[in-house]
Nucleic acid binder design. Sequence first.
DNA 1: GTCTATACTCGGATAGAC
DNA 2: GTCTATCCGAGTATAGAC
Lengths: 198, 198
Amino acid sequence: MPRETQASATRRDELLAIAARLFAEKGFKNTTVRDIADAAGILSGSLYHHFDSKESMVDEILQTFQAELFASYDEVLASADDPRTKIERAVRLSFAAIDQHRHEVAIFQNDADHLGSFPRFAYLAERNAQSRNVWMTLLTEGVESGALRQDLDVTLTYRFIRDTVWVAVRWYRPGGGLSHEAIADQYLTILLDGIADA
Amino acid sequence: MPRETQASATRRDELLAIAARLFAEKGFKNTTVRDIADAAGILSGSLYHHFDSKESMVDEILQTFQAELFASYDEVLASADDPRTKIERAVRLSFAAIDQHRHEVAIFQNDADHLGSFPRFAYLAERNAQSRNVWMTLLTEGVESGALRQDLDVTLTYRFIRDTVWVAVRWYRPGGGLSHEAIADQYLTILLDGIADA
DNA sequence: GTCTATACTCGGATAGAC
DNA sequence: GTCTATCCGAGTATAGAC
């Protein structure tokens, strides 16, 4: 790769990281191209040397993140672990994703519904369905193997897990009192065994 | 109350209900006064006969809802029920609020962070702190009374409950397969006893 | 209580100089 | 790769007629 191209790619990535932070903090629609340019120390027009549009930026941010995330889920699904271990692994990797890609997770949480209504972002709905399949598979295997309660409402449980895990991006801050591993541990304890005194 | 005033108040409420629905569906910033006027069958300028600004509308919507919600929490706190019953009541009334005021809950979930940064909406942060106090009190009483595990991380548990309960507004639809009471029951089972086979 | 018309501001995007 | 300058559309809000 020639030096110019490499330097250009780096600048692109810097700009994407800045955009991701602002999209996460203020929402996609509520972030202006001038906001992004200001934060990058350039003028808004200059952004269009790197990207077609504001939409292109969020598109690239989300696609890159989701490709990585679902590769991880697929690894868990394909593994030879027992059902309970698979569920634990899936929960842990989700909290790890919040730790390592919190802006991307926040954008997905806050703006995916709205963005998904445009043809360009149709893949967001597909990824949503894919995520549902992953969890429904894990939970169904859990019930069938006897690891989970036989009377579990699998669909409702899927929603509770999905919501509780991802919504943590609203309050989790890396470097705070709790590591993402510790949060995952605590969460798994509550999820698997409940909060009532045994 | 004279008839004119009453009719006027009714029209106001109609307009607020329309605005609440749109704010909930598309977000506050993403909803235009023309959207609201269109849905009401009038022109945008006419809205300003009833309200000072778009902000005034969301302000009135949120204040009315929160006053009612926190009155309910206070009732639970002040009751003579045992700690576990209080927690169950607080969870149930939250799901009932989602059923009966889903637009208001959705607005609070999606826009409170952003709105709260303006002086006019400083009360949103106060209400947030108040909600935290309610739950921390309930959970602490639960641990002290022996109803809940002694090793529970109360702060983390508070966050999980708050998030899981309110985020249900994203998928709950009244008249769907599950009543809000049934969802509350299932959720309390998971929360108190976990999903693992006993 | 609603309409017509319009002022004002802000946001996304473009063209071409440097 | 960034800047200057600018277009165009959209959004909030206002004034005054009906």
